[in-house]
Design a protein around this nucleic acid. Structure first.
Lengths: 220, 220
DNA sequence: CGCCGACCTGAATCACAATTCATTTTTACG
DNA sequence: CGTAAAAATGAATTGTGATTCAGGTCGGCG
């Protein structure tokens, strides 16, 4: 048996897988999912285009992996923020603010992941993310509702509306004119958070101090 | 002068232009903008693919025309609904309900027009629609705000959030599971209208009777 | 050292639609 | 009818990227 996959080789393979993902992510962050082309990814990762296919059977799988990773990271952050809050309503507010602030900090990438136009098949990969995101918010909404903090409502539709309002308000084409001025960003996040909370039925979110500290730019 | 473009011929040309647009529209309604392919449009319109190019210099122009027509029709309907209302807030509510009900009645087409993923260039045509739509809502919001019916807020961001909430709640991937049951549809429209009005700062939209009659399916 | 198979390479191939254009058909009118 | 210009046709061309694959390279091991 003249060949055996040693630890050393395995490490190298894993590193390459990571390099491909990182290259794809970087390209998406710069030019959107449309810029994630095999040739470009390969060049960026310092390998030949054919090599990409030794790690991902097709481009679609690469994109799917990218979206899944990003999705998991965002939802984890959002859950973390919520769990650190004292009550259901402030958990909801924290989740919203967390999502909004992170999305704004990486507008292009966030847009690519969740809203940017791409051709058919590819989109299926992303709807997973939207669904997961809405699900995460829906859990919070339901929790608050059950304890009487929110009026009765269809939590599924409400969660979708919340996600839509955040996406469109933050990263959609309509918000493209925004600057990088931190004050403006903070104001935008507050406006949206307020909109979302009010929409869900929170009576006076501002007075209740739910919309206070806009989280700082995320780590990672 | 052996050839002159007669009235008769002109009529035929106009009819063809219309047939092409109609074919494109039908395809978009069935399979989304991705299905709007020159060959398919031509076949549907009963002409050869090359002929399409005698009416539209490029596919992009055809799509742009399609979106523009649809956009104008939707915004006109929305304005009409608003103008028929007695006050600013009910105008806003009427506009929202109008948009929501019409979109639900033609979910696929509405989605194609405003939210469905498509490749780059093509999307530029659509952002016009989103912008126009947000603008229409923003005018209503500002009017209500000026007369003290709504709290101070960034009307641009608020309008975008409203549009986002409606789109995502109505026709986005998250809402795909909806049935055609009229009762459910009405409930969904109400939930979203309520969400939107509350989000904008209307204190008790339901009690004020703003969210009452969900408009019947549109004509056209 | 030398061999083996896993790995990598990147030019060639394939797929898919938009777009072109040489030809054919239609229309108007003397 | 015959002719000229406009219109229409649809097969061929083009462009863009994904995907393949016939070699070349590399790491481990006897």
């Amino acid at each position: 048996m003249p060949y055996r996959r040693t630890e050393n080789v395995t490490r190298k393979l894993v590193a390459r897988h990571g390099a491909i993902m990182a290259a794809a992510r970087a390209l998406a962050a710069e030019g959107g999912l449309g810029s994630v082309q095999i040739a470009a990814v390969a060049e960026r990762a310092g390998i030949a285009s054919g090599t990409v296919y030794r790690y991902f059977p097709a481009k679609l799988d690469l994109i799917a992996a990218l979206v899944a990773a990003q999705s998991a990271a965002e939802i984890a952050a959002l859950d973390r923020a919520g769990n650190a809050a004292p009550g259901p309503l402030s958990a909801l507010a924290a989740a919203i603010v967390s999502f909004a602030a992170r999305a704004l900090a990486r507008r292009r990438l966030a847009f690519a992941m969740i809203a940017e136009p791409v051709e058919g098949e590819l989109d299926a990969a992303r709807s997973t993310y939207r669904t997961a995101l809405a699900g995460a918010f829906e859990r919070r909404i339901r929790a608050a509702q059950e304890r009487g903090y929110l009026p009765d409502q269809d939590t599924g539709v409400a969660a979708a509306a919340l996600v839509g309002a955040l996406i469109e308000g933050l990263i959609g084409p309509l918000a493209q004119a925004q600057t990088d001025d931190p004050a403006k960003i903070r104001a935008q996040v507050q406006t949206l958070t307020l909109f979302g909370l009010r929409g869900l039925g929170v009576i006076d979110a501002r007075a209740r101090g739910l919309v206070v500290q806009t989280a700082l730019p995320p780590p990672d």
